[in-house]
């Protein structure tokens, strides 16, 4: 296979991988903001926690990182569920209006960012850490890919699609979607709104956690890594239209591809490029590419 095609394939797989991780994170945040109306500044911290737990479970206890998905996901779900059920429910019921609730809940999540970051700092220290798992080459038509890249790609797309199907097909999914349309009407129609919002926040956090589990195979971890993913997730859900799950999925993939291309050109510019794209876009189309 010619060199150029290998490079293109390499960038495409890398971009899809990054994009599928972004998509998971963004779908999670989209659920939290789109339905529960919490713009979660601590979203990236759940990624960081998911990643660090996997590191410990794998290197200390010896549990396979893919099995960790089944442990970390549910645990973070429960934590997220309880946070929404207690704290944000109180904020929501005491806020005079929607804007006040959105503002105060966002500030509260900033407090969480602090708490989670510093718990991680005590638990894992400030140094960069990493582990290796499935780090051998797989030959696809002449191009060599690291096996973990393909595994991450497969799992994250699987989780993303699975979750979307859950929202689209199941009864609970319908409850969530109707709450996203109009919380008051949904609650009048017998949907337990506090329960649904808590489910959303829990699922959102769990998706971030699982993205962390998967991505930990390829990156170095430290307690302050979360914020950049929060910002990327915010950018994606704005691009995809606030609250749109398919928009978050597609937006994630697109931003991942662009990020990978820029990284090939100048790695130190890649994050700046992410943010820079966002600024003109929010000005021209504040409702997002896919927003109505």
């Amino acid at each position: 296979m010619p060199e150029s095609i290998v490079t293109i394939l390499d960038v495409a797989i890398g971009g899809l991988l990054l994009g599928s991780i972004y998509a998971l994170i963004a779908m999670g945040l989209s659920l939290q903001y789109g339905v529960a109306r919490v713009l979660n500044i601590a979203h990236g911290e759940f990624i960081m926690i998911g990643a660090f737990c996997t590191l410990t479970l794998y290197t200390v206890v010896g549990i396979n990182p893919l099995v960790c998905l089944a442990i970390v996901g549910p645990v973070i779900f429960v934590i997220g569920f309880l946070i929404q059920r207690t704290l944000f429910t109180k904020l929501r019921t005491s806020a005079p209006n929607q804007a006040a609730y959105e503002g105060s809940s966002m500030l509260a999540t900033f407090g969480f960012m602090f708490i989670i970051q510093n718990i991680a700092l005590i638990a894992w220290g400030a140094d960069y850490q990493a582990y290796t798992y499935l780090n051998f080459g797989v030959n696809i038509g002449g191009a060599i890919f690291s096996a973990n890249k393909l595994v991450i790609l497969g799992f994250s797309i699987g989780i993303g699609v699975g979750f979307y199907t859950f929202l689209a097909r199941t009864r609970m999914g319908k409850g969530i979607r109707s709450a996203a349309q109009d919380a008051t009407t949904a609650s009048l129609m017998g949907v337990n709104i506090n329960h649904v919002l808590a489910l959303c926040f829990g699922f959102g956090a769990a998706m971030a956690g699982m993205a962390g589990v998967l991505y930990s195979m390829r990156i170095t971890l430290n307690p302050f890594m979360g914020l950049q993913y929060t910002v990327i997730a915010i950018i994606i859900i704005v691009l995809g239209g606030l609250g749109s799950i398919p928009g978050a999925f597609l937006g994630g993939l697109i931003l991942g591809l662009i990020g990978e291309i820029v990284t090939k050109i100048d790695p130190s510019l890649s994050l700046a490029a992410h943010y820079f794209m966002f600024l003109p876009l929010i000005l021209v189309r504040p409702k997002g590419i896919f927003g109505k």
Partner: peptide, 8 residues
């Protein structure tokens, strides 16, 4: 950490 709790 305590600072975070105070904020919340």
């Amino acid at each position: 950490i305590s600072f975070g709790f105070i904020l919340v």
